[in-house]
């Protein structure tokens, strides 16, 4: 393909070549290097099987879950600029976000709907992986990691649910954490550790906030990396194992 002088001048400049350590990706070598020499792309293999790209196979649910996670990090950080995790100020800061922060209500909407969406998509992803038998050897342990990721996702959503500090969140968390207290023996202690007391209060709010904005998102990022790394080590999606002409 003929490149204009401008494109050529740009892509051959010292600055460009210091950024991208490969040539224009119109040939196999440079297409490979594009993937392997970029930290964001190198999670992908250089080549992928056409079978694993079939839409009706995976519905892209794992990718969608990751995208929703990204949307949640982005909108979550924006909300953190205004939200104050104290019993006195949490609710007023929610009101402030909704009424006086530019696009505040919209940002909160996006955060909430993406959160519900992520729980739903992660569940659907698990259903897809199960029914396609993608947990079979050598992928057994990656399935277990997936179950852990589902639990982390539920935890991240549940801890975020309390933060608005309205009646809805307060009583949902009260009902939800009451379930923990039914565990024989350790139940009441477990609930107390979770709440930081016997009732939902300031200690609960700060615990849930810390879990929600730091511990769970970081754990998710770490374990998702492991999850994706194992997908690659196991040779991509299980779809690639189907002999030609079947499936």
């Amino acid at each position: 393909m003929a490149q204009s002088k401008l494109v050529k001048g740009l892509t051959h400049s010292r600055v460009w070549r210091s950024l991208f350590r490969h040539g224009w990706p119109d040939n196999p070598l440079d297409r490979s290097l594009t993937m392997t020499s970029n930290i964001f792309f190198h999670l992908h293999p250089v080549k992928v099987s056409r079978k694993s790209l079939r839409w009706q196979y995976s519905f892209g649910l794992g990718v969608v879950a990751t995208i929703l996670y990204g949307v949640l990090i982005f909108t979550g950080v924006l909300l953190m600029f205004y939200y104050v995790p104290s019993v006195e100020r949490a609710y007023p800061s929610m009101k402030e976000i909704q009424l006086s922060v530019p696009l505040g209500q919209f940002t909160r909407n996006m955060h909430r709907w993406a959160a519900h969406g992520m729980v739903l998509v992660v569940i659907l992803h698990m259903v897809r992986v199960f029914y396609t038998g993608a947990y079979k050897p050598p992928r057994q342990f990656n399935w277990v990691i997936g179950v852990i990721l589902l639990l982390f996702t539920l935890g991240a959503s549940f801890t975020g649910y309390l933060l608005p500090w309205d009646q809805l969140s307060f009583w949902a968390i009260t009902v939800g954490t009451n379930i923990a207290s039914y565990a024989p023996g350790a139940g009441p202690v477990m609930r107390e550790i979770l709440l930081g007391g016997t009732e939902v209060g300031q200690d609960t709010l700060i615990r849930f906030y810390t879990l929600h904005i730091a511990l769970l998102p970081l754990s998710l990022a770490l374990v998702v990396s492991l999850h994706l790394w194992r997908v690659r080590k196991d040779g991509g999606l299980a779809a690639t194992e189907v002999p030609d002409g079947e499936g």
């Binding site: 609710y91 209500q105 909407n109 709907w113 309205d166 009646q167 809805l168 209060g201």
Partner: peptide
């Protein structure tokens, strides 16, 4: 997010 607002009830009251 344009079509449906995230709900915010009255302030929490134990």
């Amino acid at each position: 997010s344009l079509a449906k607002q995230a709900p915010l009830d009255a302030i929490a009251n134990p």
